[in-house]
């Protein structure tokens, strides 16, 4: 039963963490910032509202939010959150999870193109482009992990003190991997310096412009989906940053929550001190993550041999 006990609160807490980012940004801006439960209020408000649909749209537009949220939720089922056993795990679930997130992306893009809006098309084109490099990075990282563990499940990489084992074998290059994964996190979840979720000009957005036309509960699903996706990536990073198993699930959970707070705070700090890259510079930034993962793999293999 433990997996369920962890999974449900994890999902429920997913909207909490992004508020940390807002708080940190507000701190840097010298403001008080929104309350910590702001995203729950937002969701509740959205779920209470009705929707306006564009006359250009089809059923895909309604399917998009559902599929992207479901994909993110299902992906979380395979992840050992706080090092506890995941709900499901099978040989090669890494691939399944990555492609499932791809399915979510497909539908987000398709829903955006459904509106016939030039702005949303622009966002969609970017959403289709940058994650390609991210995928290469992620696979590079998993090749390294596979080489180290001989397994291809998220559980074998991140369960219990398995990440510690990764650190022991790979050593310092794993720091590159963590950095690379953090860049993937920023890119996949449309954060600064790839995308600015707080900007006001539609031309310069990626994720936000794609969901311009969604409203009401549909938009709530999209928000929830992106919270879950961010949670997914942050949870992986947190397992890599804090690879220890403290012996008791509750202690693990406490440590995990703390690290998660720190990661979200780090995202907030980056958003406060950095500017968004010009769109044509983004690929190079994302490519850096691939270079990091690649160098880490090559160096590690030199030692593990």
């Amino acid at each position: 039963m433990t997996p369920i006990i962890i999974f449900i609160p994890a999902i429920l807490s997913a909207p909490f963490f992004p508020a940390i980012i807002l708080k940190v940004k507000a701190f840097f801006g010298g403001k008080k910032g929104p309350p910590l439960l702001i995203q729950y209020y937002t969701l509740a408000k959205l779920f209470k509202k009705g929707s306006v649909y564009s006359t250009s749209t089809t059923y895909i537009f309604k399917l998009g939010p559902m599929v992207s949220l479901s994909a993110a939720l299902t992906a979380l089922m395979f992840l050992p959150i706080s090092g506890a056993a995941p709900l499901f795990s099978f040989k090669g679930d890494v691939l399944f999870v990555l492609y499932l997130l791809g399915l979510g992306r497909f539908f987000t893009i398709a829903a955006a193109l459904d509106t016939a809006s030039p702005f949303e098309g622009m966002g969609a084109a970017r959403e289709a482009y940058f994650p390609i490099i991210c995928e290469a990075t992620t696979f590079m990282i998993f090749i390294l992990f596979y080489r180290l563990t001989g397994e291809l499940t998220l559980a074998s990489f991140f369960y219990g003190n398995h990440p510690l084992e990764l650190w022991r074998v790979a050593g310092a290059p794993l720091a590159f991997v963590v950095t690379a994964f953090f860049i993937v996190l920023l890119t996949e979840n449309a954060r600064v310096p790839v995308d600015d979720p707080a900007t006001h000009l539609e031309l310069t957005m990626i994720h936000e412009v794609m969901v311009l036309d969604h409203s009401g509960p549909d938009f709530g699903f999209i928000e929830m989906g992106s919270f879950c996706k961010l949670f997914f990536y942050a949870a992986i990073v947190s397992r890599l940053v804090f690879p220890f198993d403290l012996g008791h699930p509750a202690m693990n959970l406490a440590a995990f929550s703390l690290i998660m707070l720190l990661i979200y705070a780090a995202v907030g700090v980056i958003e406060s001190v950095m500017a968004r890259y010009r769109m044509d510079r983004v690929p190079k930034f994302v490519l850096t993550s691939f270079a990091l993962a690649f160098v880490a793999t090559i160096i590690t293999l030199e030692f593990v041999k």
Binding site: G50, S51, V52, M66, F119, D213, G216
Partner: peptide, 18 residues
């Protein structure tokens, strides 16, 4: 979704052109 949209008003309009 069905639950959330029960007796809600959904309207159709043109796409938001910014």
């Amino acid at each position: 979704r069905v639950f959330l949209y029960r007796d809600k008003i959904t309207t159709r309009s043109s796409t938001w052109g910014c």
